[in-house]
Design a protein around this nucleic acid. Structure first.
Lengths: 262, 262
DNA sequence: AGAAGGACCAGTGGTCCGTA
DNA sequence: AGAAGGACCAGTGGTCCGTA
């Protein structure tokens, strides 16, 4: 029973119900009021189909051969990146325990987090080049960094993937114990990566609650996390839960219900 | 005789000489080597003429009537903004001494600097709204802020103008004494605003030299300046002069010329 | 079905150049 | 001529949705 915005978000961008077409829709479900986050967003886009797809033969994998310091392959997974084979997609992630290597055509979560560290290395290189040239210096992992990573041969790094799992990496950075426990629990239940990803939101919002709901400063205070943009969804969740918490706190003054956060 | 990048820049974006079409052109003029900053930039753009201009009657000046706290008009200048008159351009700036009010259809430099303070106020309002809504919060004066300023009735604020004089405001913030002295000097010489604007670069580069050439951290360290992007030209000048200074320092080891910065 | 990522789009930073 | 600013453009942040 979705009694708060976190649960409501399980539907993520898929809720197709006839909501009022605007963000601040409030519905009462179960016993609580909750804000529907990220709903009513299904209106703006309208992509024109304009097929030009289908990559052309071997044009890819030029392998600029100047991959700096730590390259991949050490990490057990990936897919060889060996011969002149046609470029394949990366293997999908599965929920693995800390230290566990994914078997078969799968990648584990340690590998996922390793990709974030690699992006950080690429950012640092881009920053060093920028400083040397006296150009403006990025503080975040920007398009420029993704382009640089690709040019450096890390074709398995791409923006949609990295943005998709940022909050999972955030939990890993901010509370590794909790992150590890969550991985073990979800693996035991036999859940897929999508379910794990969804489950990462809740403990993050709890962390934010403890720190005055300021998710931006939480990200910025952590040296490895500060280079990543706060994901829209996480920001919205924190905002919605803050409102929720404030409401609960003020109402419980009269009802005498649950204990107050202050 | 242009012996350093600062002097070279007097030509700004106008140098039409047949340079090598790339940024890092180095020429030897007079007795020193200097990097041509911002030259060879005249290649990318190629605006298509697509006239749609000519504003339509009274559509402007809707005057949303919700101009927050300190509005203009106090400042002596501006152009009345009174009746249903057709929208006019702002009066051009002239070089004025500190405290001097420009006479005739002109605006003074105190007024110019006041516009930067107004932009800061608008930014703060935009930030407050963003925080309240749990949206991502700008730290700089962005397009969004200019749009907000316009909507709030400050139609005399626009991006090209503010960006054009940022470094002048920077000098005003970082060394008001030097800024005031420069204004008095340029006024005495009867120079126009363009000449004053150009002259503002030199003392800024000197400040940067004293602080390790890091113009970004100089901007960021100042509370009123940190909300403005470092102008490209100023960044390039600092970079060019740093190279120049390093070169001079290392060569003077053998020549025994000018005293070293370290 | 679940997931990876090419490719799209609205709005950005930057400033040119037609205008007054 | 000197200057103000509308309007343009390349490349950004964000993520959808055709693909495997």
């Amino acid at each position: 029973t979705p009694t708060n915005a976190l649960d409501a978000l399980s539907q993520e961008g898929l809720s197709e119900e006839p909501v009022q077409e605007e963000k601040e829709v409030v519905g009462s479900v179960g016993g609580g009021m909750w804000e529907v986050v990220a709903a009513g967003e299904r209106k703006k886009k309208q992509r024109r189909s304009l097929k030009v797809h289908r990559k052309t033969v071997v044009e890819n994998h030029e392998n600029d051969a100047d991959d700096e310091d730590d390259e991949d392959d050490d990490n057990g997974n990936g897919n060889g990146h060996g011969g002149i084979s046609e470029r394949q997609r990366e293997h999908p992630f599965i929920v693995t325990e800390p230290g566990e290597v994914a078997r078969g055509k799968k990648n584990g979560l340690d590998y996922l987090f390793h990709l974030y560290e690699q992006c950080r290395d690429f950012l640092i290189q881009v920053q060093n080049i920028a400083k040397e040239r006296g150009e403006k210096c990025p503080t975040k992992v920007t398009n420029q960094v993704f382009r640089y990573a690709k040019k450096a041969g890390a074709s398995y790094i791409n923006k949609p993937k990295m943005r998709h799992y940022v909050h999972c990496y955030a939990l890993h950075c901010l509370d590794e114990e909790a992150s590890n426990a969550l991985r073990r629990a979800l693996k035991e239940r036999g859940e897929n990566v999508g379910a794990w990803r969804q489950a990462c939101y809740k403990p993050l919002v709890a962390i934010a609650a403890r720190q005055g709901w300021d998710i931006d400063s939480i990200f910025n205070a952590h040296p490895r996390l500060s280079i990543w943009y706060v994901p829209t969804k996480l920001r919205q969740l924190c905002h919605a839960e803050r409102n929720n918490a404030t409401l609960a706190a003020s109402s419980s003054v009269s009802t005498g219900a649950d204990h107050l956060p202050f």
